[in-house]
Nucleic acid binder design. Structure first.
Lengths: 209, 209
DNA sequence: GTCTATATATGGATAGAC
DNA sequence: GTCTATCCATATATAGAC
């Protein structure tokens, strides 16, 4: 910490610029020139710091993955009862979808890219992916005690992500399809906070039908 | 119909090849050369028939959109009771996700592309987008008669698409995140047929909680 | 209609001065 | 560390022969 609060160091500025561009356009659509402009430097410096587009992208993807999966971690390994966890996960994903939709959109869409072998590598790095074992056990215990209908943790997560996060992922398509305004969409997402948790909680504790 | 069943005409072969490549790689990742190879012709012919990559892409996207939205149309305007419609929509999307996931993945991910003004144009063309009015009325009637809890058709569609289609959209991410094998994923999707309809039907007819 | 050859542009990457 | 200038590969698109 030499002087005081100076402009962010170059490497950081590049990473921020790259995040923005890669998240908006994906790997194939991104241009090194645009990243350089966004960071207020020239292309050569990008290569000086990160060697290649691939490597710069890896950094960005890894950071995004950590950010996305990291937020779940805390909730997953807390000691709260299952019911609370479900509610908090729903809250989390609706909020993410409202405030930082870029990250999950980026992760989910880019994970489709062919020949992106490093996606596999990266996600298998230590500490990136969340551990679902605690929750799996918790479900098993509740089920054994007859308090809930048994369910695979995979199914539960698909429910939560599908009900809460999907609308944000599919937003451009959904708004067009159903003619929803931006404000209308925001409101619709807000509604899902309670709707999603209610549906899931019901399916667990209230297995009617 | 000149002779009899000959090899598909060039224009059709190109469209099929282009569909395959664009769906796999998106607009930015697709290469005209790969499309030409896939169709068994050379690049020049692509331009002879479709003039530019943009225009070829438009054709592909339009066809995909019609295919995707068209499948909903029939269900939406049928005369069956609401309950049946929900079940059939769930069935439809799980099946699509299992058998032709490329189409919804393509539509949903490509709809994010910047400066794709023609997406708007295209989706506003006559007969592409489904009409949700009949279903909206149906919901209103059921609610007025006190048979269901009132709900916006947008919310209902988000439930259906989220529960049934999202897993297929997010498949690469989900499998990595939760360590699911291909076969395991297929089974998980199958389970959602009944699970999704049950949850949604419950939320409509059985508003506990 | 279909091909080969080529024009033209652009993007990622490097060399080398400062 | 940062810049300008440039290399080189590749991508879209066109010209023109057959």
């Amino acid at each position: 910490m030499e002087s005081t609060a100076t402009a962010a160091p170059t490497e950081e500025r590049i990473l921020e610029a790259a995040s923005k561009v890669f998240r908006q356009r994906g790997f194939d659509g991104a241009r090194m020139q645009e990243i350089a402009d966004e960071a207020g430097i020239n292309k050569a410096l990008l290569h000086y710091y990160f060697r290649s587009k691939e490597q710069l992208y890896e950094q960005v993807f890894r950071a995004s993955a950590k950010e996305f999966f990291g937020s779940i971690l805390i909730i997953l390994r807390s000691e709260e009862p299952l019911r609370e966890k479900v509610v908090r996960l729903c809250e989390l994903y609706v909020t993410v979808g409202l405030e930082h939709p870029y990250i999950p959109v980026f992760i989910i869409t880019e994970a489709h890219r062919k020949g992106a072998g490093f996606v596999a590598r990266m996600l298998s790095e230590e500490g990136v992916l969340p551990d679902f074992e605690p929750m799996r056990r918790q479900i098993a215990e509740e089920a054994a005690a007859g308090r809930i209908r048994p369910i695979a943790v995979e199914q539960l997560m698909m429910d939560i992500l599908g009900l809460c996060l999907f609308p944000a992922i599919a937003r451009p398509m959904m708004q067009r399809m159903m003619g929803i305004s931006d404000e209308g969409f925001r409101q619709a997402l807000e509604l899902r906070r309670s709707r999603a948790s209610r549906m899931i909680i019901n399916s667990l504790y209230n297995p009617a039908g």
